[in-house]
Every structure is written in structure tokens, then in C-alpha cells.
């Protein structure tokens, strides 16, 4: 009995720690502090408990209990729905929206984090049961590191060269580099855009990157992130300075325009480099035989 208590305790502590490590509220303003934190830490604790209890249940052996634990684990699928619904509701009042692809990505990540918590707790309690607590501590640390690494996906800077682009006009057409962004009607607006507007060009490194950046969802995620950090000069029903990302159909390059509150071009480039590549936007034409042949 004493042994089982230690097994469960170590598993729960390791699992909850893993959830804490993966819970960061950064520039994306999500989850909000403190209520979102409490929700996710509580769910993380429950997930850790589910993972930690599994080993003693199997060792006893109590297979009914183990089966119930599997059923409990399935409840974490609900987290994805919860996140999706919350973010979709907030979306309606955002001036620059996240886009459904980004929301799906975030919701998926939240679900996956809880499974990583279960695995961490399971591995730690399992190690304690088989080899004792010193090994369990080692396994816990390794699981935490692996969980952290698994949560770091690809960024835009990994798939494309992000370079400053010249903001200029071809008569009434606003251009970033050689990408047409939009028609700006009034001369006063054009002057403001030339003075304060900032442009960036994304140059995809290969065909996979080109198709990934083609995705409207990926571009919307970039626009959302840069607007959240640097600000925009748009307001409700005053959308003439809307940040936009348009494609050069010939080269696949993406021109990004932003009229920021903080017009720091260097920061803009760095922010775009760190925007995550959205899972549902990822394209892999080069994984197919004909995709590789056509890319020659």
C-alpha cells in the first residue's frame, strides 16, 4: 500500500509539473490569467492522476479499474471542443481575427498537452513501481524535457526567408516589393501609408513552404500575431489600413503589409519568423513522387 501511495504521488507530481511547464501565457493572450490557468492546471492534475493510477491498478491486478481509466482519458477530447468554442466566440470581436486554422491548431495543442501529461505520469509511476524512486525521478525529468520538445513545432522562419519589403505605390495600388496589396483611394491615406506603413516579403524556401504559405489560414495567423504585438491603426468600420498578406502568383512570395502602432521593422521581421506553422496549413507536395518530379 505504502509503495502504491508513493507511485501515485510521484506520477501526479510529475504530470502536474509537466502541465505547468507547458502552460505559458505569452503574446497570444491565451489562456487568460488567472481563470484559464486554474482550468488548465485542474485538468492537468486530473490527467496526471489518471496516468498515475493506471500502473497500481494494473499491478493489483484490477483490470476493471484500468478499463475505466481508459474511458476517463477519452474525456480529454472534450478539451479540444472547449478551446475551439471559446476562441471562436472571442473571434467575433477581434479586429484582426485569428482565423479558424489557428484556432484549430491551438485547440489541438491543448488536447495534446493533456495526453503528454498522462504519458509523463504513467512513465514516472511505472518507473517507480518497477525500479524505485531514484529511477522514477530520472524518468520524470526526461519526460518533462521530451514533453517540452514535442510542443515546439516549426515556425515561419524555418520554411521561408523573411525580408523587409519596400512599401510603394503603382498609381493607386499599394505594393510591397512587387506584390500588389490593395487599392488605396484617397491621397491622404496614401501619404500616411508611405510614411508609417511597413512591408515584409516572405520567400518560401521550397515547394512545401510555398504551398504552406498559400494557405489563407497560415497568412491570417501571421497577420493576427503581428497585429497583437505591434498594434494596428484600424478601428471598427475603419478598415482602410487593414493588415493584409497577398501572394505573388508567379513566384509564390507573400507580401505582408501592416500599419503598426510601433513601426519597428526589425521586430516585425522577427515576429513573423516566430509565428508557428499551423498544422492544418502544412503542405507536403514534395513527399509525393510527382510533386518531387514537378519541382525539378
Amino acid at each position: 500500500m505504502q509503495n502504491h501511495v508513493l507511485t501515485i504521488l510521484l506520477g501526479v507530481v510529475a504530470g502536474t509539473l509537466a502541465r505547468l511547464v507547458m502552460l505559458r501565457s505569452d503574446y497570444r493572450h491565451y489562456p487568460s490569467y488567472p481563470h484559464g490557468f486554474v482550468t488548465h492546471i485542474s485538468l492537468g492534475f486530473i490527467a496526471a492522476l489518471v496516468g498515475a493510477v493506471a500502473v497500481p491498478a494494473l499491478a493489483k491486478p484490477d483490470y476493471v479499474a484500468a478499463t475505466f481509466l481508459i474511458l476517463a482519458a477519452q474525456q480529454f477530447r472534450e478539451i479540444r471542443n472547449m478551446e475551439r468554442e471559446t476562441l471562436a466566440r472571442i473571434e467575433q470581436t477581434k479586429l484582426v481575427q485569428r482565423g479558424s486554422d489557428y484556432i484549430e491548431g491551438i485547440a489541438g495543442v491543448f488536447e495534446a498537452r493533456n495526453y503528454l501529461v498522462i504519458i509523463t505520469a504513467l512513465a514516472t509511476s511505472g518507473a517507480n513501481h518497477l525500479w524505485g524512486w531514484p529511477v522514477a525521478l530520472g524518468v520524470a525529468v526526461i519526460s518533462l524535457v521530451i514533453s517540452h520538445l514535442l510542443m515546439q513545432g516549426e515556425c515561419v522562419g524555418d520554411i521561408a526567408d523573411v525580408v523587409p519589403g519596400k512599401v510603394h505605390f503603382d498609381r493607386s495600388l499599394l505594393m510591397v516589393g512587387d506584390v500588389v496589396i490593395m487599392n488605396v483611394g484617397l491621397p491622404a491615406f496614401r501619404e500616411k501609408v508611405l510614411e508609417e506603413g511597413r512591408g515584409v516579403v516572405l520567400k518560401p524556401r521550397d515547394d512545401d513552404a510555398r504551398l504552406t504559405l498559400d494557405s489563407i489560414g497560415q497568412r491570417q495567423a501571421i497577420l493576427h500575431d503581428i497585429s497583437v504585438i505591434l498594434g494596428t491603426k484600424i478601428d471598427e468600420k475603419e478598415m482602410e489600413f487593414m493588415p493584409l498578406a497577398k501572394k505573388n502568383a508567379d513566384t509564390g512570395e507573400i507580401g505582408i503589409f501592416l500599419l503598426p502602432n510601433e513601426p519597428d521593422l526589425e521586430c516585425l521581421v522577427e515576429i513573423i519568423k516566430k509565428v508557428p506553422v499551423i498544422e492544418s496549413s502544412k503542405a507536403r507536395p514534395l513527399s509525393s513522387y510527382y510533386g518531387r518530379r514537378a519541382a525539378d
Binding site: 493607386s172 488605396v184 483611394g185 484617397l186 491622404a188 491615406f189 475603419e238 482602410e240
Partner: peptide, 20 residues
């Protein structure tokens, strides 16, 4: 003309465009 376009845009929540 520019003033009218701006006023209409602000009143109706639209964006003024120039057809050149």
C-alpha cells in the same frame, strides 16, 4: 470629391477606392 468619399466611408463603414 475626396472629402465626400471619406465622409461616406466613415458614415457607412466602407473603404474609399480610386478607379484612376
Amino acid at each position: 470629391q475626396e472629402r465626400l468619399a471619406l465622409l461616406l466611408a466613415r458614415i457607412m463603414g466602407g473603404v474609399p477606392h480610386d478607379l484612376e
